[in-house]
Each structure stands twice: as C-alpha cells, then as structure tokens.
C-alpha cells in the first residue's frame, strides 16, 4: 500500500487520547474508601491534535513535561490506540501494526528500546537484520556506515548492560537505523548525555538526514537539539497544539527583541539609544541591550559610529527562555 509517495508522511486529524487516572487521597480512611469505591478521573493527554508533516522534514516537537509529546509519539508509532480521531503514517494506520509499516519506522525512546540488554550490540544488529529481512549486502554496508558515523567500533562486543550511557545511546541509534526507516521518532535522544556527546549525536543526526532524508519527529528538552536539527517546531501544552511553524517565527512572535552585546575599547558608553532599545546588563566594558528587531540595523550603525566598539554580537534570546515564557505567561497562543 505504502510504496506510493504520500503528500504527508504523518497526518493526524482531531486526534485525541484519554487516560483514566486512579486517585487516592492521603490517609487510612481514604485508602479504605478507595478500596470499596475507587475514584478516578479522565485526563485528556492529547486534544484534537492536527499534524501534517511532509516526507523528509525534521520537526521539533516541544512542550513541558506531561504536555502529551510522548503519548503522541506512541500513537504515531502504533503503541497506543487513539481514543478518537484519525492517524495516517506513510499511508498506514499505525495501531494496525502492519509489518510493512513497522519496517518503515523507528522509535528511539531511551537506551533500552531496541538493544538486547543481555547481549552485545553486534548480536542485536544480527537479530535485527533477520527480523527486518535485510540482505547480506544491505546489512554489511549499513552496519559499516553506522559504525563509522557513530564511532562505536570499540563497544560492539561488550554486553549492552555494561556500556556507558553515551555508548548505549549511539548503539541504540545504530540499531534503530539499520533498516533505514522512512520515519524516525526520537524521544529525548540526548537526555542524560554530556555536552560533547549531545553534540556528537546532533551532528550524526544531521549528517544522517542529509544522506538518507528520513522524516524525523524529535522531542527534546535540550533546545540546542531543536535549534540544531529542526527548522519547524510544533509546540503542545496540555495536549493542545499552541504553535506550529518556523522556529524563527516562534522566536519573533514570543520575543520581538534581539540581544545585542558590545565590548567597548575604553571609557564610558556614550551613545543615545534608539527607540525600543534598553540596557539590560553592564559589567566593565561589556554591555547588553534588548533591541527591537526593526531597530537592530539602526542601533548597530549608531554603535559603530561611536568608533569605540571592540566587539559586537547580535543574537536571539535563548530558546529555553522563550519556551519557558510560552508555558508560564498565561499559556498564550502566538498563532
């Protein structure tokens, strides 16, 4: 069915998922009451979610804890049955779990999703090869490529449970990509890793995407991941989509100012600030301003005109701050 090219790799309409959550107040009486009449409430983890993602796109899927990101990924990969609404992934209905569909996707969620914990990664690769029906040449070529790209040659024969977090994550990625999935769901792929390893994983994913063009849906609490990998972001909160668009649009809508940092050669800062600019920090010869985006060129010209500028940088506010702002300032909808 799905050999044909679809306009959207992922398409959901009015997607909902409810969970029933058991409740129990503190204390013995409450426990007793709960024993005879268990209390529960229904939580809408995902609410009327519409997703349209084209083949080959990398999309950042953002939201605070409990926003419904992982629930959505689980529905998209066929682990969870939606309460209502429709999902199509590569033309398949995920929860039917057709083998052709499962051969076209990979879900990376932590470091225990695909690796056999009691065996070395190379054994998992061999099992994976048989399950996914890879030919000798496909297997040999891909294993070699992935080993080289992820630099995992030295840990292939060590029992998985004895590998470091970073080694396991890289091996997990390797096994998840061995069958060259058309869609890759990445749930916090760099969580718990040190900065160097995070960077390596990001670079690998970018390189892999450049070469094989899979559709990638990525959740991460590390905004560096999102900024490095995804051009488009979808933000959900309490199961509702609150933003869907280009990362720079999100930045612009949430924060219409840029941060301008300067270092003076010497002396005091003597320059009239343009309208919409304000000083937010000063330390010695270092100054930081918030500058309205439309005023950035004017302000930069003014600063250079003073002839006392040793260095000048202009940047967006940190993405973490923006997302934090999105979720704390009245759940505003920037769309």
């Amino acid at each position: 069915m799905s050999e044909q090219q679809h306009e959207y790799a992922i398409c959901t309409r009015a997607l909902n998922r409810e969970f029933t959550v058991r409740l129990k107040a503190e204390g013995l009486i409450a426990s007793l009451r709960n024993f005879f009449a268990p209390a529960s409430r229904t939580v809408n983890a995902v609410n009327d979610l519409e997703l349209l993602i084209r083949p080959g796109d990398i999309v950042g899927f953002l939201g605070p804890n409990g926003a419904g990101k992982t629930t959505t990924l689980k529905m998209l990969s066929g682990l969870l049955v939606p309460t209502s609404g429709s999902i199509e992934v590569l033309g398949y209905t995920p929860f039917n779990r057709d083998h052709a569909f499962l051969k076209s996707i990979s879900l990376v969620m932590g470091q225990k999703q695909n690796l056999w914990w009691d065996l070395p990664p190379i054994e998992t690769f061999a099992i994976h090869r048989r399950i996914y029906g890879l030919s000798d040449s496909e297997y040999n070529t891909r294993v070699k490529e992935l080993i080289d790209m992820l630099e995992i040659a030295d840990c292939l024969e060590t029992q998985t449970r004895k590998l470091s977090l970073g080694q396991r994550m890289r091996c997990e990625l390797a096994v998840s990509l061995l069958h060259q999935p058309q869609i890759l769901f990445l749930d916090e792929p760099t969580i718990g890793l040190d900065i160097l390893m995070q960077k390596k994983i990001r670079e690998f994913l970018l390189d892999y995407h450049r070469r094989f063009k899979p559709t990638i849906l990525l959740t991460s609490h590390y905004m560096d991941d999102v900024a490095a990998l995804a051009q488009r972001v979808i933000v959900i909160d309490h199961g509702n989509k609150v933003f869907d668009g280009h990362l720079s649009d999100l930045t612009q809508k949430l924060h219409p100012e840029k941060i301008m940092s300067i270092v003076l050669n010497n002396g005091e800062f003597e320059c009239k600030l343009a309208d919409g600019c304000r000083l937010i920090h000063r330390e010695g010869l270092h100054y930081r301003f918030l500058v309205n985006r439309s005023r950035v060129p004017e302000m930069a010209a003014k600063l250079y005109a003073t002839g006392n500028i040793a260095d000048l940088t202009i940047e967006d506010p940190p993405l973490e701050d923006l997302i934090g702002q999105l979720f704390t300032s009245g759940r505003q909808k920037p769309e």
């Binding site: 099992i127 090869r129 048989r130 399950i131």
Partner: peptide, 20 residues
C-alpha cells in the same frame, strides 16, 4: 523459519541463558 527472524531470536535466547 530463518528469514523472518524466529531462528535468530531463538538463538539469542540460547545465548542469554548461557550468559547466566
């Protein structure tokens, strides 16, 4: 039996048992 991975999975379980 071999092509869809059952034999590979069976062998994997033998290997795990021998590990422990």
């Amino acid at each position: 039996f071999k092509s869809d991975g059952k034999f590979a999975v069976l062998l994997a379980y033998f290997k795990i048992i021998m590990t422990y």
